[in-house]
Design a protein around this nucleic acid. Structure first.
Length: 513
DNA sequence: AGTGCAGTTGACTTT
DNA sequence: TAAAGTCAACTGCAC
């Protein structure tokens, strides 16, 4: 039987892996992962991502070896490395998952497809999640998603026949690949086995108060699923997560029906699981936007918003210049707003922060600092261990208001402090300068008389920065600009088009007049 | 004891 | 997945 190539990308697992299953039916499998320098060279990439990938590769290699095959690792540009491998070990078909990624991987996939055509090598791509390739219309998308999620996940094969005499290739650290060492010393660790453990602990225990806990950077640490990096690198499929969630929801329902626990508690638990399930759907919903419109990596969804804000080397249409100092302060976590700086510094160390704080960071960069979303988005992509291109760019643009189909959401850092870190635990941990300041002052510490600041061990402007913008002034300016702009005919017309193409159909579409 | 008033709360609207 | 602004009702207190 002819050799089959299984190309592992962001699907680093053996369970629910259609390409592996299909390939294994047809012949010995050459299972390969490629380190791609052109991906490492993107602004979105960070060495912490590679560390997570490597941990996943260790696990994947072991899983494949247990089954009788090797995980082959190569480094280089595609399809060159493909060609070299093919020369040594000719393969008949390339089996992979569809990937909805940045332009760099989209172009690479097209080069590989062309190479396959030219070489007479077959290629086959399976859907990776609920995203539909070559989608014609958003109508009926949710039903299609559900159907795909309810198709039974594929169990891991017991045996995979490998190809003898292939040099395995080493798992290489960032340093060995000529990259800086990762500085995220408290990052989540990767791997299919760990991903399954995280899923299990979430569904069994941690999800009990998911809905109530997720907004807080404190409770969210354990109360959120923490599956995001595992989903981003495919240690788990969305389908596996979905099916485990609905199974667990069934158990919780039965437990409640049979009086097997506190009824109120079990009701809340059921609602939390439902809420998580809908987030799994949103996961694919947002990736679908990048799949349908790859340009949103670089350009506004809604082109009427072009030039509204200054970009790194292009002033805004109204000549507002790029705020380089503001951008640097935001990146480095020294804006003078403790909740903003704590969130950014938490990201620096761990690569994770809950959704609400992410939205707040994006809001601060694009509204308070009035920056085009592109540079902030690239920076946060590098800081998110769970960076998922489709979710990232869709969400960032939604938050920046450049899709023009959602209400403008400008977060107030002081209010978020009060609402989500009332005891100041989070800020005290990540902004140690303020460790001795009582929580009630952490929203706006500069308002405290200097003598009291001194008593509390932190003089604002000396030990911790003064706020780089005035919240209320910046809020009003941004709000008014957005609002005035939203009213223009060009913005409205474009919004209709964007909604038509990308809007969720949860609520019936508004009739255009 | 009722009145006036500053300050608070909450629903609703606007941006 | 927002928050400010507005307005009216309410509260507590002084006189």
């Amino acid at each position: 039987m002819p050799t089959q190539l299984v190309w592992f990308k962001r699907d680093l697992r053996v369970a629910d892996h259609a390409p592996l299953v299909e390939a294994a039916k047809r012949g010995p499998c050459l299972c390969v992962y490629f380190y791609e320098p052109e991906v490492f060279a993107t602004a979105e990439f960070d060495s912490s991502h590679l560390v997570f990938i490597n941990e996943s590769l260790v696990d994947l290699r072991e899983a494949l070896r247990e089954r009788g095959a090797e995980l082959v690792i190569r480094t280089g540009r595609l399809p060159d490395v493909f060609a070299k491998l093919h020369a040594e070990h000719p393969f008949a078909t390339v089996w992979a998952h569809e990937e909805t990624g940045q332009l760099v991987t989209y172009e690479r996939d097209k080069r590989v497809a062309r190479w396959c055509r030219e070489q007479g090598v077959n290629s086959y791509e399976a859907p990776a999640n609920g995203v539909v390739r070559r989608l014609k219309s958003r109508d009926g998308w949710a039903a299609g998603w559900r159907q795909r999620m309810q198709t039974p996940a594929l169990p891991a094969l017991e045996r995979v026949v490998g190809v003898p005499g292939v040099e395995a290739g080493e798992i290489r650290s960032p340093e060995e690949l000529g990259l800086p060492a990762s500085t995220k010393h408290e990052a989540q660790r990767g791997g299919e086995s760990l991903g399954r453990q995280v899923l299990h602990s979430f569904l069994r225990q941690r999800s009990a108060h998911y809905r109530a806990d997720m907004a807080s950077p404190n409770e969210g640490w354990d109360g959120c699923s923490r599956l995001s990096p595992h989903l981003a690198y495919g240690n788990l499929s969305v389908r596996q997560a979905y099916q485990a969630t609905t199974r667990r929801a069934g158990e919780v329902r039965r437990l409640k029906a049979t009086g097997g626990g506190d009824a109120e508690e079990l009701t809340a638990w059921g609602e939390s699981l439902k809420s998580f399930e809908s987030r799994l759907s949103w996961h694919c919903h947002f990736i679908q936007k990048l799949e349908d419109e790859p340009a949103i990596e670089f350009e506004n969804f809604n082109h009427a918003y072009d030039g509204l804000r200054p970009d790194v080397d292009t002033p805004a249409n109204d000549r507002t210049p790029w705020n380089a100092e503001g951008f640097a302060a935001w990146c480095e976590g020294r804006t003078g707003y403790p909740i903003i700086d704590a969130s950014m510094r938490c990201l620096h160390a761990t690569g994770w922060i809950n959704f609400r704080m992410r939205a707040m960071l994006a809001s601060f960069a694009t509204y308070h600092l009035w920056l085009h979303w592109r540079e902030p988005a690239k920076y946060l992509a590098s800081q998110f261990l769970d960076y998922e291109p489709g979710i990232h760019y869709s969400q960032f643009q939604m938050q920046a208001g450049t899709a023009g189909i959602n209400t403008t959401r400008i977060y107030s850092p002081p209010k978020q402090t009060l609402d989500n870190d009332p005891e100041g635990e989070f800020i005290h941990r990540w902004v140690p300068e303020l460790a001795d300041m009582p929580p009630e002052h952490l929203g706006e510490p500069w308002k405290l008389p200097p003598l009291l600041q001194q008593d509390m061990g932190c003089v604002i402007g000396r030990d911790y920065p003064l706020p780089i913008v005035d919240h209320l002034k910046a809020y009003r300016a941004a709000r008014d600009r957005m609002h005035a702009f939203k009213k223009t005919d060009a913005a409205r017309a474009e919004s209709r088009r964007v909604y038509q193409k990308h809007g969720s159909r949860k609520r019936p579409m508004r009739r255009g007049r």
